[in-house]
Design a protein around this nucleic acid. Structure first.
Lengths: 188, 188
DNA sequence: GAATTCATGTAACTTGTTACATGATTTA
DNA sequence: TAAATCATGTAACAAGTTACATGAATTC
């Protein structure tokens, strides 16, 4: 349902092809709603069948033809309804936590490595979000102050999430820390 | 893959039926890895076909028969490998954020209601996690201090996530706040 | 010369969701 | 007396993933 609505949302901003839709997803919603190319094309087909959008084939010279979709009246209506409806709860799939539940007998050092590696990945993601906040390219597309604010808030959500993860990882590592001998000192 | 491994993990703790597996999921991993009953039974069938687990039918008098599954050697091996492997990144589906991306023209008051309602739901979830931390029933099942620590950490992750959400919601509401007249005062 | 971008699509598969069905026993 | 619990399962569907295929143009 949300994918459907999101496509309508993008097409409301401007008509575009499946290819561009995918780019837009990656660029603006990728962190909280990932999609694959196959999903997009499939959904576009059903949206067109249901007459929520209309596609017009444009000849690309050299490049392949592309089909540019725009919202039909019924699409507008469905988008509006979705926008004002209450949201479903966020759900996540967190393989690390699942692993922890069963990890009591894993070597402490191995577990610590897993946690450390996960932390590094989150830190990388965090840096990526942080750099987005300063990218004018993103906010240049916004058509109003309010839209820019909304987009910024969605990136800041990503930052807050990363910070929470990093804090938790540190705590977990401290509490699960493998007993480590203090570093050897010259016996003198 | 993770569902498969998690089932192996539960069966490693003790042999049990599909029904109980589901209970265990809800009780200990539900917040970061939800599953439905159909998924579990399907996975159990393929795990048995692949000879990672073995099911033994037990007659229930009055109650329906149940099939109690336990780990086979190959299942043990796969579980161990999974436990030591690095984790895949967490991914989430966050319908609220998706909505925000397209919500520039939604009435501020409507948007604020959506945010407020979301915040309430998160607060409820948070309270639920907090109460779990004090439930002895959960930790009584743990077979070691370390296991109890791991389980506690997974609950604390949920708390940290809720806190991050709540903080972000407050910030978002402040920045998107609908202009509200100050409350009427008796003109005197 | 190799990889990436543009732009579409199909096919096969896995995972996740919803709804239905059985039937005794216990709890509200 | 209605519902929830115990315990299994099937069927149909929706959503998500992976891999493949085309072919010119551009970038490394």
């Amino acid at each position: 349902m949300s994918l459907r609505a999101a496509i309508l949302g993008f097409l409301h901003i401007e008509p575009m092809s499946g290819y561009l839709l995918r780019k837009r997803f990656e660029g603006s919603a990728g962190s909280f709603w990932s999609v694959t190319q196959s999903q997009i094309y499939r959904e576009l087909h059903t949206l067109e069948r249901d007459e929520l959008i209309v596609g017009i084939r444009e000849a690309g010279d050299g490049k392949p033809d592309r089909i540019v979709y725009s919202l039909a009246r019924r699409g507008e209506a469905e988008l509006e309804a979705w926008l004002e409806a209450p949201v479903e709860p966020a759900r996540m799939r967190h393989p690390l936590l699942l692993k922890l539940v069963f990890a009591a007998e894993v070597e402490p050092q191995v577990l610590d490595d897993i946690l450390a590696r996960y932390g590094e990945e989150v830190a990388t993601t965090r840096a990526d979000y942080a750099s987005r906040l300063t990218m004018e390219a993103i906010f240049a597309l916004a058509r109003s102050e309010r839209e820019a604010t909304l987009w910024r808030l969605s990136i800041e959500h990503g930052l807050a999430w990363c910070d929470a993860e990093l804090g938790w990882v540190e705590k977990a590592r401290r509490e699960l820390a493998p007993q480590r001998r203090p570093p050897d000192r010259d016996p003198r």
